[in-house]
C-alpha cells in the first residue's frame, strides 16, 4: 500500500511538472500553429534563474516569482525576435527553435558554469508526513498543489475572461477572430509569455524535486511534454493535464515494476493514441 501510494504521488508530481511545460506548448501550437522546440530551454532557464535567486535570497517564493519573471521576459524576447519572423513556416520554426534551444542550454553553462547545481526544498517543505503508516513526502504534495492551482487559474481565465474566450476561439479559427476586429498578434504575445512563465515555474519546481539541475534538463523534459501534447490533443488545455498525469503515472509505475520499459511506455502510449485517435484524447485539430 505504501509503495502504491508513493508511486502514485511520485507519478502525479512528475505529471504536474510535465503539465507546466506542456500547457504552454499546446496553447502555443493550438493558437499560433508554432512548433516551439525551444520551450524546454525556457523551462531550464526558469530552473537556473529561480534556484539562483532562491539561494541568493533564501526565499523559495521569491525564487519562484523570479523564475516566472525570467520566463515572461524570455518568452517576450523569443516571440518578438525569433518566432514572429517565421509565423506560418513550420520548417523554419523547427530549425530556428531547435537552434534557440541549443543556444539557451549553452548560455546556461556560460552564466552558471558547466557543472550541475544542487537544489533542496525550503525548510518548510522538507521531510514528510506519516498518515496511517503511509509516508507522504511534503515537497511532492507541494508540486501537485502548485500544478493543480495553475491548472485551475488558467482554466478560470480561459473560461471566464474575454482574453480567455479569445484564446479559445483563436485555437479554433484565428482568421475569424481577426475578422471580428481582434488583434490576434497581441493575443499570441500574451499566450507565449504565459506559456513561458509556466514552463519556467515548472523548471524551478523540478530543482528540489530531482536534487540537481543541469543545462540539458530542458530537452529531456521537452520530449515528455511533446508526447503529452500529442496524447492530450494539440491545442487542448484540459487534455494537457490529463495526458501529463497519464504519462507521469505510467512512467512512475513502470520504472518500479518494469524498469526496462519505463521510457518506452510513453512512446507506446503515444503510438496507441495516434492509431485510435489521431487528434489526441481532447484534440481540436484532426
Amino acid at each position: 500500500m505504501d509503495v502504491f501510494f508513493n508511486l502514485t504521488l511520485n507519478g502525479l508530481a512528475t505529471g504536474m511538472l510535465i503539465f507546466l511545460l506542456a500547457a504552454g506548448l499546446t496553447l502555443i501550437f493550438g493558437l499560433m500553429d508554432v512548433l516551439n522546440f525551444a520551450h524546454g530551454g525556457l523551462f531550464a532557464w526558469g530552473a537556473y534563474s529561480g534556484i539562483w535567486i532562491y539561494s541568493s535570497t533564501g526565499s523559495f517564493l521569491i525564487g519562484m516569482i523570479g523564475a516566472v519573471a525570467t520566463g515572461f521576459l524570455l518568452g517576450w524576447l523569443t516571440e518578438k525576435w525569433i518566432i514572429k519572423p517565421v509565423y506560418g513556416n513550420h520548417v523554419q520554426q523547427i530549425l530556428i527553435t531547435l537552434g534557440l534551444m541549443l543556444v539557451l542550454s549553452e548560455l546556461l553553462k556560460v552564466v552558471w558554469g558547466p557543472n550541475q547545481i544542487s537544489a533542496s526544498p525550503p525548510d518548510v517543505l522538507k521531510g514528510s508526513w506519516e498518515v496511517a503508516g503511509i509516508v507522504i513526502i511534503k515537497y511532492r504534495v507541494f508540486i501537485i498543489a502548485v500544478g493543480l492551482l495553475m491548472f485551475f487559474v488558467v482554466q478560470y481565465i480561459l473560461k471566464n475572461t474575454k482574453i480567455g474566450l479569445v484564446v479559445r476561439a483563436g485555437v479554433m479559427n484565428k482568421e475569424m477572430v481577426q475578422a471580428l476586429g481582434i488583434n490576434i498578434q497581441k493575443v499570441f504575445m500574451f499566450v507565449f509569455m504565459a506559456g513561458a512563465g509556466m514552463a519556467a515555474l515548472g523548471g524551478i519546481l523540478l530543482g528540489p524535486y530531482s536534487g540537481v539541475i543541469h543545462a540539458e534538463m530542458g530537452m529531456e523534459f521537452a520530449i515528455l511534454a511533446f508526447i503529452v501534447v500529442v496524447i492530450g490533443g494539440m491545442g487542448s488545455f484540459p487534455g494537457s493535464i490529463l495526458a501529463a498525469i497519464l504519462v507521469g503515472l505510467s512512467g512512475s509505475f513502470m520504472a518500479y515494476y518494469v524498469p526496462d520499459l519505463s521510457l518506452a511506455v510513453n512512446m507506446l502510449l503515444m503510438a496507441v493514441v495516434l492509431i485510435f485517435r489521431p487528434q489526441g484524447l481532447f484534440g481540436l485539430k484532426g
Binding site: R168, M176, A179, L180
Partner: peptide
Amino acid sequence: TYTIAQKGIGYVPEDQGIFAQL
C-alpha cells in the same frame, strides 16, 4: 484584417466561421 473590421466592416464567411466548441 482586425483594423479593417474595427473600422466598421462585418464579415460572414462562406463557411460561417463559427467557433464550434464555444
